[in-house]
Structures are given as C-alpha cells and as structure tokens.
Design a protein around this nucleic acid. Structure first.
Length: 580
DNA sequence: TTGCTCAGAA
C-alpha cells in the first residue's frame, strides 16, 4: 500500500480533531500536503464533522493550491451551518473570482442555506440566476433549497412559483414547502399545500405531520388536526416524539386540554418540548394551577426546565391572578435554575401585576427590566390600565410609546377606552382626532371558521366569499333571532364606555368578521354541534353580546379564540364572565 | 459530501 493510500485509510477512521492533527503532521513529514485527495479529505473532516474545527479547516484550505470543487463545497457547507454563515457566501464569491473549479449541485445547496440564514435576499436571487445558467434548475435538492431560501428571505410568492415550476418534487420538497409556509406564518397556505400534495401520491411522514399540525394549532383548525392525528396513528407516526409534541400543542391551542393530556399520557418518552407544550397549553387557557402542577411533575421526572417553561408558568399565573406564585417562579429562575429572565419574562410580570391591579408595581417592573425601550412592555401596561381605568399610568405608558415612535392604532384605541371608562369625553375626542389626523393604520381584523376540512376566512364586511349572498341573508336572520331574545346592537364606537377594538374602527356597520363566520357556521354545520371561531384581534363588546344571544337562540356552543384568550359561549353566557 | 420537524406574553 502506498503512503497516500495509508493516510487516506487513516483519515477514514478518524474521529477526533486531535487525531486529525496527528495525521496532518504525518502528511507534512511525508511531503504529501499537496496531494489533492488527502487535502480535500482533511478539509472535509474539519469543516463538516461535529468533532472538527472550522478555523482548522480554513487553515488547511488556504494551503491547497487549486482547491477542487469538493474542497470548496466542504468549506462553504461548513460555514453555512456555522454561527457565521456570511463566511460561506464569501467563500462562494471567492470560488467564482479566483478558482478554476466550477460550482455543482452541492455548492448551490450549501450556499442557499447560507443565504437563508443571513437573510441575503439579493444573493439568493443572484444564485438562482447562476443555477439556471449552470443548468441545475431541474435538480430537486437544489430547487428545494431555493424554495427555502426564498421563503426565509420573505419572497413567499417567488418561492411558490419555483416550487410549482419544479419538474420533479419528492416528499422532502413538499415537506419543505409546508414547513416554510408554517414557519413564515402562512398557515392557511400550508394547509392548502397539503391538499395539493394529497393528489400527488408522495405519501407523508413525520415532517409533514409536524408542519401541518403546527399550522392547525395556529389557526385553530381542530377538524384537520384530528384527521391528521388519525393518519398519524394509522401510519405509525405517533411514536415520533416531534409528532406527539406537535399534537399536544395542536389540541391545547384548539381548546382541547383533555385531548392534549391523552396524547401526553400515551407518549413513551417525554422531552422538554412535551412538558412545555402542556405547561404553555394550561397557561394560555388561564389554568395557572394546572401549569404549576405540570411544572412540579416535570421536575420530579428529572427534566430541566428552560426559558419557555417559565413563560408558560408566568402566563398561567397572570391569567389566573396568582400574583404570589408568579413572583416566586420569576425569582426561582435565577436562584434555583441559574437562568436570567429575558424581556418576555418581564412582559409576563408586567401583565401579572397589571391584571391584578397593581399598576405601580407593574410600572416598577418595567423600570427594572433589561430594556425600557421595548414597546411591548408599555403596551402591556396600557392594556392593564384599561382594565382598571387608570388614566394617570395609562398616559405615562402612552407617552413612552409615542417617545419610542412605536404607538399604533391599537394603543390609541386602548387609551380612548380608558378615557371612556372614566367618562372623559375630551380625552376620547382627542384620541379620535389623533387617529384620524395621523391616518393611523389599523391591522385588518379577520375570523376563521373550519367547516369539514376547509377553512373559511372572513374580514369586515367581506363580500369575497363565493356564497356571500347566502351568508348575509343568514346573518340578517340570525340578528333577528338574537334581537327577539333581547340583543341590541351597540350603535357606535368610542361613544360607548365599552370595549373598543381595532375592528370597530374599520366600520360602523354591524358586520364584523366574526358575525359573518358565525352566520356561515350556523348555515353549514349540523344542529347542536359546536362552532369554533378563531380571531386575530380581541372580541368587541357588541360581538361578545351578540354571540351570547346567538348561543342561546340557536342552542349552540360557540367557542371563540381571540388574540388573547378563549371564550366559551353557551346558553347565553360566556366563560370569561364578561371580563376580558 | 446535499434538502424537511415540536414550545412563548401583548
């Protein structure tokens, strides 16, 4: 066996950096440092292996006279997955300007990963052009990476076009499209991709299920989620811990804590994600005690909590008014678990004190937080001032938001509602004028409803639904039925001292998105079944009252998940006891 | 030597 063959063999069995350095020394003493296959292997090991070292890979790489494509690929790949992915793009540029070696399908896949991670949108487009010029636009892996890179850079439409134009799409391509949509917040689109996927006979796996379940959780698509759960059982994916965790999250976010627990209980292995999904689930439902109980069990099971565990706990304490417990866990982070509370934990504490009416303490909390420049903290405080009708601190919060240049329509509406709460008509007029004169934009309100396995989305005064004529007809009938039981529509916004939402600003008519969704639900679902609505904004006072009457008039349970919490309407009353 | 997965207050 020749010396170079011996060294190549040694390299194959190499499993640590120290061992590699010894082999490297051996390479040098034998004068083989310019042997192409050896130097390429050395660089590959250092750049890609978990026990490698990128800086050592760089050192080796710069000693190669004319690095071959494979060596370039290793260094580009290594940096693409490293904490400094920009380096990967710089090496890619170098390859074009200073090397005779040409990029191949691997090079493009790796550099696209780097573009995705550093948000290099222009580079992503440029690489796309090069891919076409070099004739790799039919490579399924390259195109899948291109889709991911475009989504990661915010070009959702371009990504979908690349995906649609792919000559071949395998299961990973479909999974990537779904998970990209899901992670970018395009949940409705993610579920639509699944509909397309079903016609293509590519099957599905754990990755598919996790992406889809995550989108179901976000939009509250329980029927689709339950269907996926059934498929997961049939196809043997329920043992996959990622799938189990995604199922727990889906059930919890759809308001079915019992089903979430069933999944939790049936899992053979529970990791920190599993426990967190339960704790957060109980937390967002306002069951602080449930979250605490799971937290204790988690510690007994020997699972180490992390920062999200505490967010779930603090959120639960805040919604249930468990101030003392919340304070205890906030301190415990530092004293017992050596974790520094982040800005989001401070946000929970501001909410905890604020909700409980301890507004001065909430204000102090912002003072001690790592950043007083975070608009979210001040906005949380403003929300608490609305609940407790505190004009003084409300104005302080607003002043800070304005100074930070972060005030939005929602904030002015909150302050207007605070003025309305104390019947300060001048204050209300001031807010109304500000909103009008500054042309402050509201975020558009929408409501989803799931009927069968389809999701129907409505906006205020929506006329885009193919059956809108029928829906409006039904809504008028529903309003009449509700009126027979005593429902009186609230006339206009700010003049009433009630809950005013952004949606109220958009229109003065009574056709808010959730009313349309409710009318549609009544028309399209069997009598006696529950109707589930998901909203992106808070429920307004008028819609809340309307939904109570509808639940009684039509003998239906109506479950509304708004931006902050769940409302379960049944027999004319709501689970929030009109306090939200 | 390529590509895809789970948790968060307001």
């Amino acid at each position: 066996m020749s010396k170079s063959d011996t060294i190549l063999k040694l390299l194959q069995g190499c499993n640590s950096l120290q061992r590699l350095q010894k082999i490297h020394a051996h390479v040098i003493t034998n004068g083989l440092q310019h042997h192409p296959a050896i130097s390429t292997k050395l660089v590959h090991f250092c750049a890609v292996s978990v026990s490698g070292s990128l800086s050592y890979a760089q050192l080796l790489f710069h000693h190669i006279d004319n690095p071959q494509t494979q060596a370039w690929n290793s260094i580009i790949r290594g940096f693409a997955n490293s904490p400094s992915p920009l380096q990967s793009i710089l090496y890619y540029n170098d390859m074009f300007s200073s090397s005779v070696s040409r990029p191949d399908n691997f090079t493009f896949s790796f550099v696209l990963k780097a573009c995705e991670r550093v948000k290099a949108e222009n580079k992503c487009r440029e690489v796309h052009g090069t891919i076409i010029r070099c004739g790799y636009e039919r490579d399924v892996v390259v195109c899948t990476n291109l889709v991911r890179s475009y989504v990661g850079n915010g070009f959702i439409g371009v990504a979908k076009k690349v995906f649609d134009d792919m000559s071949e799409r395998d299961l990973v391509s479909w999974n990537s499209m779904i998970s990209c949509y899901s992670q970018a917040g395009f949940h409705y689109e993610a579920l639509k991709v699944y509909d397309e996927m079903k016609n293509e006979n590519v099957g599905l796996d754990g990755f598919t299920l996790v992406g889809l379940l995550s989108s179901c959780a976000h939009v509250g698509a329980l029927n689709v989620g339950v269907n996926l759960h059934r498929i997961a059982c049939e196809e043997g994916f329920v043992k996959n811990v990622y799938v189990g965790n995604a199922l727990i999250d889906m059930y919890a976010k759809c308001g079915c804590l019992d089903d979430a627990f069933c999944v939790f209980d049936s899992m053979q292995k529970q990791d920190v994600f599993t426990w967190n999904s339960m704790i957060v689930g109980y937390g967002v439902h306002g069951h602080g005690d449930g979250a605490i109980s799971f937290f204790r069990q988690m510690l007994m099971a020997g699972v180490q909590p992390n920062s999200i565990t505490f967010l779930g706990l603090l959120c639960g304490c805040s919604h249930q008014g468990l101030v003392e417990e919340g304070v205890e866990y906030f301190h415990m982070m530092n004293t017992k678990f050596n974790m520094k509370p982040g800005i989001k934990h401070y946000g929970c504490m501001v909410d905890l004190f604020g909700r409980a009416g301890k507004l001065e303490k909430a204000l102090d909390m912002i003072g001690t937080s790592p950043s007083q420049d975070d608009p979210v903290l001040w906005r949380t405080l403003l929300g608490s001032c609305k609940i407790h009708k505190n004009v003084k601190i409300g104005e302080i919060a607003m002043r800070n938001l304005v100074q930070l240049g972060a005030s939005n329509a929602g904030d002015y509406i909150l302050l207007a509602a605070i003025y309305a709460g104390v019947k300060d008509t001048d204050g209300i007029a001031k807010m109304r004028k500000l909103i009008k004169s500054q042309g402050i934009k509201t975020s558009p309100g929408w409501s989803w409803i799931e009927v069968g396995d389809q999701i129907h989305k409505f906006v205020v005064d929506d006329k885009s639904h193919p059956d809108f004529f029928e829906i409006y007809h039904k809504l008028r009938e529903v309003i009449n039925q509700a009126a027979l039981l005593g429902y009186v529509p609230e006339e206009s916004l700010i003049s009433v001292a009630g809950l005013i939402t952004e949606e109220c600003l958009e229109t003065s008519t009574s056709y808010h998105s959730e009313k349309l969704a409710i009318a549609f639900g009544l028309a399209r679902t069997p009598k006696g079944t529950s109707i589930r609505i998901v909203k992106n904004l808070r429920v307004c006072k008028d819609c809340h009252s309307f939904t109570k009457y509808v639940s009684k008039a039509f003998n239906r349970e109506i479950i509304v998940r708004d931006r902050v919490r769940f409302h379960h309407f049944k027999g004319g009353v709501c689970s929030c006891k009109d306090y939200w």
